[in-house]
Amino acid sequence: MKNSDEKRTDPELSYKVLALQVTCHAVNQSSDRQEARLLMQGAIDRLGQQIAASLAFIGSGCRLVLLPEYFLTGFPMGEALEDWAEKACLEMAGAEYEALGAIAQKHRIFLAGNAYEVDPHFPGLYFQACFAIDPAGSIVLRYRRLNSLFAPTPHDVWDRYLEHYGLDGIFPVARTEIGNLAAVASDEILFPEVARCLAMRGAEVLLHPTSEVYGQPRSPKDAAKISRAVENMMYVVSANTAGIANSAIPIASVDGGSKIVDYRGLVLAETGAGESMAAFAEVDLAALRRYRRQPGLMNTLSRQRFDAYAESYRDSQFYPRNTMLNGSIERKHFIHTQLATIERLAQQGII
């Protein structure tokens, strides 16, 4: 992974971005690791064709393609942590990332998405990671989901994670020729602090791979996408799944609504249900940077008084950190920890 502090060279101030809405083919019913890997490779092969066709339609100005949440595997449905890690999780420099890198190289694009992956520093655990691969095929952004109800996160092994990756590794921003890229996963769009910490580090384009219900007017996630764009004065690119196949849940339960929102909260492009490349639009970095540098009422980013809130955050303990430092544990740990947190906050009169 390249150093996120590298300076931009020859920036592209205007380009097209695509939130590619594709079907996820789950690996839950695979009998073993080998069968799951074959399904993943099949998904990558399909993606290569779909990306090539989409770029031919959109044109050479498309520089960034975002794929949905866990597009290679689906999500765990009761599997033990160690079983899911073995069957469905990628290695940080594994064959799947290499194959995706080859697609990025072939089309000279930034290719971003989301996958479950293992980390040799944390045996027995896995993380859900958002990634971005540059046109050279190198991973330039790796963000591990910080808020998850049913999966390990860096916060669950906080002290050790900081030792290995530091705070900028928890809130990474990749400085590239197409702008400063950052990412959040799925319902993390509902946690404004994550996007805010990324904005503090210069993020301009927020990548949001997701797998969510679509069609309910003004759903919480839809409202949050616009809110994160406006309050941080950044683009939000959100790619949803076009359903999940090979799963016990009905295939279209999470399908549709991929969209691109600009720094003013305007929805530039949006697609309905089904596999689609209709959610593409222009990212105008020059306009974004002018907007961020103009004084006035609308420049809320420059008007932030973070020090006024710091003490309240520091003194408030809600969901505890470091609960998984001893490695793999049973999946019921997550809901038990949440229930204990709710009980404690109720006793304190907070909720």
Rank of each mutant, 00 (worst) to 15 (best):
D156K: 04
R160V: 03
W158F: 15
F150T: 11
A245S: 08
V205P: 07
F171L: 06
D119I: 00
E212Y: 14
V140Y: 03
T241Y: 10
T153N: 09
R142S: 06
E193Y: 14
Y116T: 12
P192Q: 06
E163A: 14
V140L: 01
E212P: 10
S186M: 10
H164N: 07
D168H: 12
P172S: 10
N232H: 05
R218F: 11
N246K: 09
T210M: 12
L141V: 05
M234W: 08
V213M: 09
D168E: 15
A242S: 11
H121R: 07
Y116E: 10
A185E: 01
D187C: 11
H208L: 15
S227C: 07
L167D: 07
R228F: 06
R228H: 07
K221N: 15
A174F: 11
E177W: 09
A242I: 10
N240S: 08
I133A: 03
Y126M: 02
D134R: 07
K221C: 15
I170P: 10
V205F: 01
Q128G: 01
S138V: 09
N114E: 01
P217G: 04
I226W: 08
N240Y: 15
N246V: 06
A245W: 05
P135C: 11
R175V: 13
G137P: 14
V237L: 02
I133L: 03
R228N: 08
I139L: 04
P120Y: 03
E212V: 14
P220G: 14
F131G: 05
R218C: 11
Y214E: 06
M233Q: 12
A199F: 04
A185G: 07
D156F: 08
F122V: 05
A203L: 02
P135M: 03
A182P: 09
W158S: 08
L167N: 07
V118T: 11
C130A: 13
M233H: 13
N246S: 09
L146F: 06
G179Y: 09
E193G: 13
V140K: 00
G169V: 05
F127Y: 02
G202R: 09
A115E: 00
S148Y: 10
T153E: 12
M234G: 07
V205R: 02
F127P: 00
D222N: 13
P217Y: 14
D134K: 02
R175I: 09
I133P: 05
N114K: 00
R144E: 00
V205E: 02
P217Q: 06
V173E: 04
G202E: 10
A129L: 03
Y143N: 00
L162I: 07
I133F: 08
E117A: 05
G124A: 06
A129H: 02
D134C: 15
L162E: 05
F191T: 09
I170A: 13
V213H: 14
A229M: 05
A136L: 13
A174L: 07
G243I: 01
L141C: 08
E231S: 12
L141I: 03
Q128E: 01
T241F: 13
A229H: 04
Y165F: 15
D159I: 14
V118P: 00
